Simulated assay, not measured.
Amino acid sequence: MANSNNAFERRRDRVRRSIKKVANGRPRLSVFRSSKQIYAQIIDDANGHTIVAASTIEKDLKGTLKTGADTAAAAAVGKLVAERAKAAGVKEVVFDRGGYVYHGRVKALADAAREGGLEF
């Protein structure tokens, strides 16, 4: 178990390093995926604060979703974070998948955010 956690941390750090190189001042769309929920937030690293956030634990999403741990829930969160970002004036972001593989729920969230109007 410790080895898989270390591999996750190495992968996350490698992704973060590459994001810092290509960000050019764009905010970062960060994804956190647990076994039961999924969270997304757009972070301004220059100022060190969160611009917008969305997750499956919010009341308006929680009632409409069957579960917080499937691709439909991830797509709903992606769409919601894109709507909130457009309202806050954010159009371009850099996608931070953390240490997660770009597949399944992470990919569904990213695709829904793109359809919602975010560019990355």
Rank of each mutant, 00 (worst) to 15 (best):
V101N: 11
V77A: 04
S55R: 03
Y39V: 07
G25T: 10
A75G: 14
G63I: 01
D13A: 15
A54N: 05
H49R: 15
K79R: 12
T67W: 08
D96Y: 08
R33L: 14
D45H: 10
A87L: 07
D70G: 05
G98L: 07
M1F: 10
A53D: 01
Q37M: 06
R28A: 04
A53E: 07
A53M: 12
R17Y: 09
G48M: 09
G25D: 09
K21C: 08
A88P: 00
L118W: 02
R84H: 07
V31T: 09
T56S: 15
A112I: 06
N24C: 11
T56R: 07
E115W: 00
A72P: 03
R11A: 15
D111T: 14
K36Y: 10
R26W: 10
R105M: 15
P27E: 01
N3D: 13
A112C: 09
F32K: 10
N24Q: 13
A2D: 13
E83K: 15
K21S: 13
I43N: 03
A113P: 09
V22G: 06
R12H: 10
K79S: 13
A73Q: 02
V101I: 15
K36G: 01
D60A: 10
V90G: 01
D96N: 05
I42P: 02
R12P: 00
R17E: 14
R26I: 04
G63Y: 03
K20Y: 02
G63A: 09
Q37G: 03
A74I: 03
A2H: 10
